[in-house]
């Protein structure tokens, strides 16, 4: 089994099975550019630095990729339709402990940076699910966003939004 070492921004090393990394468009491109798939290249001696991903987040990303090993990898732009996406139970349980904390957001940003489309879609869907059926003030309360609007501004936006009620 070929292992490739990923190095997080806080310089933690993560040896990862080559096959898993096919889920990441960014890493796949780096592997190709660094010729790490060539038989003559000593992949173990050439770690891939990921300066935008912290160690604890990268660990979660790898954990997610391990669970989704063998899943079809999406290509092209993310054009998923809201109605078609369901967050599987395993992923829901995976995201839930950190859902309202910075770590889930960091995981989502890492999925975007690493171009792991399935993780990004499910992670964004999990976030969007927290907004479903909620009013603006309820979302503010849940996510700890301060209210910047005057009552008049709030009323004006509500009027603009009436068409969607």
């Amino acid at each position: 089994m070929v292992l490739i070492t990923l190095v997080s921004s806080d310089e933690q090393n993560f040896p990862v099975e080559r096959e898993l990394l096919k889920q990441s468009g960014t890493i796949e491109t780096l592997i190709v550019n660094m010729n790490l798939d060539d038989e003559d290249t000593d992949a173990a001696a050439m770690p891939i630095p990921l300066p935008n991903v912290k160690g604890d987040v990268l660990e979660k990303v790898i954990q997610w990729m391990e669970h989704h090993k063998g899943d079809p990898v999406k290509e092209g732009d993310n054009e998923d339709n809201n109605a078609e996406i369901v967050v599987p139970q395993w992923d829901d349980d995976f995201f839930k402990p950190a859902m309202y904390g910075s770590k889930h957001l960091e995981l989502t940003v890492a999925a975007s940076y690493l171009d792991i489309k399935n993780l990004l879609t499910l992670s964004c869907k999990a976030i969007s699910n927290t907004f479903k059926g909620k009013t603006g003030p309820q979302i503010r309360e849940e996510w700890g966003v301060p209210n910047e609007f005057t009552p008049e501004e709030e009323e004006a936006i509500r009027k603009e939004n009436e068409w969607s009620e």
């Binding site: 869907k125 969007s128 479903k132 603006g136 301060p146 609007f149 939004n161 969607s164």
Partner: peptide, 20 residues
């Protein structure tokens, strides 16, 4: 924007009431 894409129209409108 990826999150917004996954919201229905009503939720997207409500998002406008969260903050400036």
């Amino acid at each position: 924007e990826d999150v917004f894409k996954l919201l229905d129209d009503r939720s997207l409108s409500q998002m406008r009431e969260v903050s400036k």
